[in-house]
Write a protein that binds this DNA or RNA. Structure first.
Lengths: 190, 190
DNA sequence: GTCTATATTCCGATAGAC
DNA sequence: GTCTATCGGAATATAGAC
């Protein structure tokens, strides 16, 4: 099934991410991953000795993806509105597959997480909030975005709307999430 | 330990609620409850045959508490501002104990919930959103609250800010949650 | 209503062969 | 790098005595 040596490891990470966003960290097992990849329990343990090692690398991968998003948005010619939209689009993609964001999923389990994962999760949240805050501050300065709160507070408001919004979508339907997105963009771009 | 027959059942419900809000539905066991109440595993099963029965009753209890809140806010002489504050205060109380709201906790586990709990959770969310929406609509009509969105959308925005806000507080600290509350009240009451 | 005792299943994890 | 085999532990749950 796996040709190059790293293929299996990458597949495990991908599946782990998917399971966490779909079912939650405590609701999938190494057996679930092994079955899906048509390998055995022990093979998963070879790549990630403990489940907490897998979790830490999944959160780390999410961090790297946000660094990549930040870099891609630094290219010239992208409006602040487009940058905010790119951020929102990440949540929309999750929503359309019945998933929730990693922060919301793992965050709900915060008090049961191994210390290593707690630290990485905090790093991730600060990264995301910082990214949004920067876009907001620049957008306001350039006159492309309008909001009355501080950029810091506004980034928290937006992120909490989206993170809880994708969770709400699974309970009451996707139209509530769509309404959140429309409202956020309308607030910011008048 | 338990004098009246219903004491144990009430204690189990109370502990179950606390565990769900602190650790999550999949991270506590009947053994945890039994140990805390100094009874045995089997005694918990007597009151709630399956864990999903316990979950359903906990969500139902939460529904009843919101009905009580709704009734208490119908008394005359309470301003719309005070009603919103009463709603926010529920989240603040959770936050101060490192807990998150039932909706956010169980909502993260949505795809793994028994059908009975899913139905009750949907009922709970609609109840809470409806309650906030009503207060917003009346407050706007009376000139006590200001917002540009529809009351329905605004209720969703407020609820998602609070639900995710208490989760964020465990990760990055309580000051972010406090900032959310201050911002929400400032938005609504100018 | 609570107990002892136990059945069943699953999970995370490891040893050692290939 | 993956396998077979297995261990220890925990969780949900039930039978039957008190």
């Amino acid at each position: 099934m796996a040709a190059r040596p790293t293929d299996t490891k990458e597949s495990i990470l991908r599946l782990g991410m998917e399971f966490i966003q779909t079912y939650g960290y405590h609701s999938f097992s190494y057996a679930d991953i092994a079955k899906e990849l048509k390998i055995k329990n022990a093979a998963v343990h070879y790549h990630f000795p403990g489940k907490e090692d897998l979790l830490a690398e999944i959160v780390e991968q999410y961090i790297q993806r946000y660094h990549e998003l930040a870099r891609s948005l630094e290219k010239p010619g992208i409006s602040s509105r487009q940058k905010i939209q790119a951020f929102i689009n990440r949540y929309t993609a999750l929503c359309e597959h019945g998933k929730i964001c990693l922060i919301g999923s793992v965050g709900s389990d915060y008090n049961t997480l191994p210390e290593k994962a707690k630290v990485k999760l905090t790093e991730l949240v600060k990264l995301v909030l910082g990214l949004v805050e920067k876009v907001l501050r620049e957008g306001k300065k350039k006159g492309e975005l309008t909001f009355s709160e501080s950029a810091r507070i506004k980034s928290i408001l937006i992120m909490t709307n989206l993170a809880a919004g994708v969770q709400l979508a699974r309970i009451t339907g996707q139209q509530d999430y769509t309404a959140i997105c429309n409202s956020l963009m309308k607030q910011l771009t008048g």
